[in-house]
């Protein structure tokens, strides 16, 4: 552009200036009223007294958080000790989500790299192939996985028939099944941001490294990984956060032993437990953890910029 407006304000157009509020209002109203207010209401509910079989009594109480963190015995009159049941469930959820994230990274990085280094035409086909499963209903994908790995499912049938194994693998209702389900659910979230980062990567840097006597794996470790790190971090967040609160994979692929946060919360509202304040408290704690992760991420992003 010759002369004219200095680019200080960014090249953001202001052609409809003065209409910002009018245009933003529907989005503000919709998300403000039906998401922000509900989240606030949920936090309030977590401090109310439970009504049996769902609902609340409008009376302040910290019982929900007390139940979450402390054990006061069967009749509530013993000195409080730390209650590990729910913390354990949260910890297991974090562990499961973490394992799934690492698995996604180990498979997703080479995949993203491979796709990003194809020529433009084949690249879009590969990318299409990787994204298609994401567009298929998550429930259906999870059910399909359950069907495939069941003890009497096609996988075990095939392996038994071929003589590779003599007994079913017993995959279903294990931690591994849940991890596999989470991995399967969110893998495209890992591939896409890494793909975008690799696509922007300047291969002259690899040439420079090779010129300076670095082998391929040294180049990967010292040059490529630092360059595409933002994509890797974004991918990890995009897999970890939804995995943490996932419901379908643990519910359908795991059993009672692999209970995760999502199922714990669901049970308070839809299941037998029927303790709304407790469910709201667990949700509030989950939201706090997720927001903390995102905040750390945003802070690092800003520092990097």
């Amino acid at each position: 552009m010759a002369a004219g407006a200095p680019m200080g304000e960014g090249s953001a157009s202001n052609i409809y200036r003065g209409n910002s509020l009018k245009l933003m209002l529907p989005a503000w109203a919709m998300i403000g009223v039906f998401l922000l207010a509900p989240v606030a209401m949920m936090a309030i509910y977590s401090f109310l007294t439970k009504e049996f079989r769902g609902g609340v009594i409008w009376q302040f109480s910290t019982a929900a958080y007390d139940q979450f963190f402390f054990n006061r015995g069967l009749f509530g009159d013993e000195p409080p000790t730390i209650e590990w049941t729910y913390i354990g469930i949260f910890w297991r959820s974090i562990w499961q989500a973490g394992v799934a994230t690492i698995a996604c990274l180990l498979i997703g990085f080479p995949t993203a790299w491979f796709i990003a280094t194809r020529d433009a035409k084949t690249r879009s086909v590969w990318l299409f192939l990787v994204t298609v499963p994401y567009w298929v209903n998550l429930l259906i994908r999870t059910v399909s996985m359950k069907f495939l790995i069941r003890d009497t499912g096609p996988l075990n049938e095939f392996l038994l028939w071929s003589g590779t194994i003599s007994e079913p693998l017993g995959l279903i209702n294990t931690n591994f099944a849940v991890q596999l389900g989470l991995f399967y659910s969110y893998l495209p979230f890992m591939v896409l941001p890494i793909y975008a980062a690799v696509e922007r990567y300047d291969f002259a840097l690899s040439e420079a490294a090779a010129d300076l006597y670095a082998g391929v794996w040294t180049t990967l470790r010292l040059v490529i990984l630092p360059e595409v790190k933002p994509g890797i971090v974004a991918g990890c967040i995009l897999v970890f956060v939804p995995s943490l609160g996932a419901f379908l994979a643990p519910d359908l692929l795991g059993g009672a032993k692999t209970f995760m946060i999502g199922s714990l919360i669901e049970e308070q509202f839809k299941g037998a437990a029927g303790n709304w304040p407790f469910g709201a408290a667990a949700s509030t704690i989950l939201l706090t953890i997720v927001m903390a992760v995102l905040l750390v991420y945003a802070r690092n992003q800003n520092r990097g910029a």
């Binding site: 933003m24 989005a27 503000w28 998300i31 403000g32 039906f34 998401l35 922000l36 207010a37 509900p38 989240v39 209401m41 949920m42 509910y45 609902g55 956060v241 939804p242 943490l244 609160g245 419901f247 946060i261 999502g262 919360i265 669901e266 509202f269 709304w276 469910g279 709201a280 949700s283 989950l286 939201l287 997720v290 927001m291 995102l294």
Partner: peptide
């Protein structure tokens, strides 16, 4: 405004579900 628009992506689905149910009931 941008943060608000991206909020539904950041809040875990189960939290949105709980919040909505609680809100509509309240």
């Amino acid at each position: 405004s941008f943060a608000l628009i991206s909020l539904p992506l950041m809040v875990p689905e189960v939290v949105t579900a709980v919040a909505s149910l609680v809100f509509f009931t309240a």
